[in-house]
Amino acid sequence: MIKRLLQMMLVLFVVSVIVFLMMSFTGDPVFMVIPIDSTAAEIEQARRLLGLDQSLFSQYWIFLSNLLQGDFGRSYVFRQPAMDLILERLPATMEMVVVAMGIATVIAIPLGVYAGANPNRAASRSIMAASLFGISLPGFWVGMMLIFFFSVRFQFLPSSGRGETIEVLGLRLSIFTADGWSHMILPAVTLALATLAIILRITRAGMMEVMRQDYIKFARAKGASRRHILFAHGLKNALIPVVTIFGLQLGDLIAFATITETIFAWPGTGKLLIDSIYRGDRPVIVVYLMLTAFIFVVINFLVDIVYTLIDPRITVK
């Protein structure tokens, strides 16, 4: 367990180095903060102020010790702490991702179990064919199609924004209002589609393998019902790769919901990232990347814990 925590710290440290180096090699940020007509002396001064005149190593050192003290830098554009900017928008992204993952899981698992347990039925083949579309259709196209049909043609659902939000436990959320849901549903579905298809396929593959095992036949010999065999005996054994992919997809959606957020003008972190990249708002990008790494590390850790809950033969190292 301790070892595991150290390992997580190490990962974050390495990420911080990479992020730092990446930022140092991509353009001179001093031009972001100074007026266009600045003199050379003013530029020099700004450099000193930003610490850009120091060696790379000491720049990193300052960067790291600031990070460790909870100082993640200020946005060049908004002049407020970059972390605050992101945290302000994180609930929007999170709730959309949670809804999307929920939709994906609730649909993918039963369909995957069915298709894996009855691989030769026509319905299973149709499910698999449909899932190929889910994987190969680009998200932005799906999003635009949904907007076209549901917002433009039938004027049934709104195409942009978050709708009404209310404050729950200090977070502004829209999942507790009807209007919020009507805004949420299209982007969430767009986001869910690829994940749904991937989880479905992984579940099916796992079930196909598991259903061949002797313990499934033995459970049948006991007289257990089909459903009990599929979901209690089968699915639990097929779940490890599903959980792995679930974790990866979850992190992926949180970190890179950018395109969907842009299409639906969803005010989340993905849109902030895009905007920050356009504006060269380095501190925001840095915080964003660090936070993303942190989220991935945490998800991975949780996934490992879930492994041990599923399979008694696995222990957390």
Binding site: Q213, D214, Y215, F218, A219, H233, K236, N237, I310, D311, P312, R313
Partner: peptide, 8 residues
């Protein structure tokens, strides 16, 4: 060896 479900 393989008749018992490993996860229960």
């Amino acid at each position: 060896m393989t008749s018992l479900n490993p996860v229960y």
